[in-house]
Amino acid sequence: MGCFHSKSPKHTPGYEEPVILAAETLFSVSEVEALYELYKKISSSITDDGLIHKEEFQLALFRNRNKRNLFADRVFDIFDYKRNGVIEFGEFVRSLGIFHPNASVADKVSFAFRVYDLRSTGFIEREELREMVLALLHESDVVLSEEYIEMIVNKTFDDADKKGDGKIDLDEWKEFVSQNPSLIKNMTLPYLKDITLAFPSFVVRSEVEDSDL
């Protein structure tokens, strides 16, 4: 029986090597390491178990752990692609990669579709769209009449549901976004262009030089 001593520092559960994550995303190794510092900060904000729970995600977004928000819930669930109720580091980096300014538009369009496809049926249905508008009104304290809500939901469906079957599929969504590119503007985070410059407090000494890769 041998005795194994790891020289690696203790990492959070679900930790993945920055070299691997950098190879799979648009981030450099040092940027992944900077994201790890951010990840550790968020994941230890309430429960210090090294995993991002939904309350911690909400706290980071809203400075309020109890603020429920339909869209934050959807984004959390999509980041948590392993569906184990927490965002692991690899999920965090790969998902944020879609928000990189240089990430493909197709990935951004697909991600936005999944946010709006509330019940994961593969379609955005009229009732889901109405539900999202109502949730947003509740969030913003804006008051709109029932008639106005019906009008914008119907108008949107008239424009997007080209097949006229009462639901918007991914192809219809892609077409609709191509005509309304502002719909995915929140799918790009300029911060990610060079996170090590934007957030010098996150920069740590890289164990692997990017130039070595």
Partner: peptide, 25 residues
């Protein structure tokens, strides 16, 4: 006024604006 429900949502929902994650730093 908005005539596009998705534009209304994407423009106004703070839950779909992840830039705040970085303010944590």
């Amino acid at each position: 006024p908005f005539y596009n429900a998705f534009e209304f949502i994407s423009s106004m929902s703070s839950g779909f604006d992840l830039s705040n994650l970085f303010e944590s730093g």
